[in-house]
Amino acid sequence: MSDAALGAVAREHEHHDATGAKIGMWLFLFTEFLLFGGLFLLYAVYRTKFPADFHFAATTLDVRLGTVNTAILLTSSLTMVLSVAAHERDNRKLSTAFLALTMLLGLAFLVNKYFEWSTKIDHGLFPGAAELATHAPGEKLFYGLYYAMTGLHGLHVLIGIAVMAFVLPVAARRPRRRVRLGTQSASRLALTAEAGGELWAETPEDAVDEIEVSFLYEHNEELAKRDRIVVENTGLYWHLVDIVWIFLFPLFYLIT
């Protein structure tokens, strides 16, 4: 490939640095980690203050339901990583299928959560309820934290599912952006996308007749890489949501 065409590739893709995108994603995950970290800090303080109340309040939570939900979320992490791996192996169909499966498992988690919350609410165990007002202060805090933490986590699951809905077509597509290389005037060489729009134009000095095939290949490969990083970053987010639950589960359900 000539220098001119190489330059065009570089310009088209200089803003799409896979490692950079991943660093950005990890930094975002750190903000999520600290967001939940603040809540874990509150939990730790109140737990230290009211250990007995916390233990007592935790007995009302359904361990079986919690365990099932843990298994669901762990499995969804597996299907997520398999989706990423399938995409890496260029198997778009399998990748999409696993992604859809991950969404379903996420939904199952939320359905369980819904039943769990509504049982609690039916029993008058929610902030502001007359029933809860009669309980010990530590129990009120336990439920306050329970709703805040599982609620915020549930919100993240919901957001994750929504994100996956957007990523589904990205994972499924095989980018074939056709570009055409040709001369527009006597000496001006231009690269145009089939959909319209000039990607690059120059007046090269050297001959460029054998460019086309290799350039197309590089270009599509680059687009595929961009899709891959989207799928991968979705995975990173989903695993973080899983990790948060890995800590929430024992801290709320298993301290009886």
């Binding site: 509150l42 303080v45 902030p127 502001g128 010990a136 202060p137 009120k140 805090l141 306050g144």
Partner: peptide, 21 residues
């Protein structure tokens, strides 16, 4: 909005933790 009670002394919460955070 919902009266969670985490910073409310009347519900066992600790307003000082608000200041910490």
């Amino acid at each position: 909005i919902v009266g969670l009670g985490l910073f409310d002394a009347a519900r066992g919460g600790d307003p000082l933790l608000y200041q910490h955070l």
